[in-house]
Computed example of a mutant assay.
Amino acid sequence: MNRNWQRCFELVRKKERIIIGLMSGTSLDGLDIALCSIGGSGMKTKVKLLKFCTVPYDSALREEMRAVIFRRDTDLQLLTLLNAKIGSLHARLVLQTLQKWEVAPEGIDVIASHGQTVFHAPASFHGLDGYPNATLQIGDGDHIAVGTGILTISDFRQKHIAAGGEGAPLAVYGDYFLFSDEREDRVMLNVGGIANFTFLPRDGNTERIFSTDVGPGNTLMDQYVQRHFEGLSYDRDSVLAGKGNYHEVLLDALLEAPFFRLGFPKTTGPELFSMDYLQKAQERSGTGGLAKEDVLATLNRFTAEVVAEAIGRCFEGGGMPVIYLSGGGMHNPLLRKNLEALLPGVLFRTTAELGINPDAKEAVLFALLANEMLAGDAANFGRQGIPMVAMGKVSFPL
């Protein structure tokens, strides 16, 4: 038998697998690396986060990636080159991190790599007859597998689309397996570049469980800071937005996108919520002369408004869940303040209280999806509409 398939069969039979989850988000700040021990599968999944870190990208790589991501006029040669370059870089960063942690690569069973999203195009966004939902991530899995000598599972979103989904958000699988609880209704709110949440009813009814994007998380705020505040990549601790005041007229213009009238579940990305989107909203509202701090404060409020409206829509009949935060937005004090004002009486916590570092949650999710690919079985998520979790493509080392 081919030794690589023999290795796969051995991994399937293991009671516990050591899996590294890799996540690189739309903020382009760096590579999240989560070292996990995962036992079982499905509702019997048990995850221990052993180590976690974020390795920052250098400024030159960020600029290269900004030249190709979320753009319709991408340089195809640069895109092709970056697919290989980022895969090889991620392999090196994994090996360097394992050395720092004093963990031997031979002790790692699998690497689960999300890759770097360069364009996300659900049909609701592109609107082109005859074309399906689509998404594209780069950072080739074969380069990671060969570079590390570790079996790698990557490109998770394509199976979701092939089976009828939009390729995102995929958090429903990990959220359902790890965080469902009969004692309380839960909303697992992740505020990354895009804000999304999973609703977990206490009754565990999969017909009521769903995961959805709701609109911009940090992406518009980050893009605005990068364009208008030299040397800064984001508004640390809301220092800039805290000096301004949100503007109702601009806020109303920002809320006009047809995306907000779509039902759940739905997906979106920085392809829609871009600086062009902001510019057009300012033109319509006659707010082009606003102070930069006021614009940033308005973008902050905008994120809070779309999150609060979406969560409130799920609970129009009364009652509110406990909201568990993860993602970079949970570190934004003004955003937290806005959310608390718009959702009075709601209890906000973080996934740290559930045993998972909230900064590591997305990387852990892809480790879990790799585990399901190896050891899981079909699972029906009702409204989510995708009766499978075996996502990802396998790349063997040499």
Results as ranks from 00 to 15, higher is better:
354 L>A: 01
354 L>K: 15
354 L>M: 15
355 G>S: 12
355 G>V: 07
355 G>E: 10
356 I>Q: 04
356 I>Y: 00
357 N>S: 14
357 N>I: 04
357 N>L: 02
358 P>K: 10
358 P>F: 02
358 P>Y: 01
358 P>H: 04
359 D>I: 12
359 D>P: 10
359 D>Y: 10
359 D>C: 11
360 A>Q: 02
360 A>F: 02
360 A>L: 02
360 A>W: 04
360 A>T: 01
360 A>H: 03
360 A>R: 04
361 K>H: 09
361 K>P: 05
361 K>Q: 14
361 K>I: 00
361 K>A: 08
361 K>L: 08
362 E>R: 07
362 E>C: 05
363 A>V: 02
363 A>R: 05
363 A>S: 13
364 V>H: 11
364 V>K: 11
364 V>E: 10
364 V>Y: 09
364 V>P: 13
365 L>A: 08
365 L>E: 05
365 L>D: 02
365 L>T: 06
365 L>P: 11
365 L>M: 15
365 L>N: 12
366 F>Y: 13
366 F>A: 03
367 A>W: 09
367 A>Q: 07
368 L>G: 07
368 L>H: 10
368 L>V: 15
368 L>A: 05
369 L>F: 04
369 L>N: 05
369 L>E: 01
370 A>H: 05
370 A>I: 05
370 A>V: 08
370 A>R: 10
371 N>Q: 05
371 N>E: 00
371 N>D: 10
372 E>A: 09
373 M>N: 13
373 M>V: 00
373 M>I: 00
373 M>F: 14
373 M>K: 15
374 L>C: 13
374 L>V: 13
374 L>I: 13
374 L>T: 12
374 L>A: 08
374 L>W: 13
375 A>K: 05
375 A>I: 02
375 A>Y: 01
375 A>M: 02
375 A>F: 00
376 G>R: 06
376 G>C: 03
376 G>P: 09
377 D>A: 15
377 D>N: 11
377 D>C: 06
377 D>M: 10
378 A>F: 14
378 A>K: 14
379 A>S: 08
379 A>P: 00
381 F>C: 10
381 F>E: 06
382 G>K: 05
382 G>S: 06
382 G>F: 10
383 R>W: 00
383 R>G: 00
383 R>S: 09
384 Q>F: 11
384 Q>K: 09
384 Q>D: 01
384 Q>R: 08
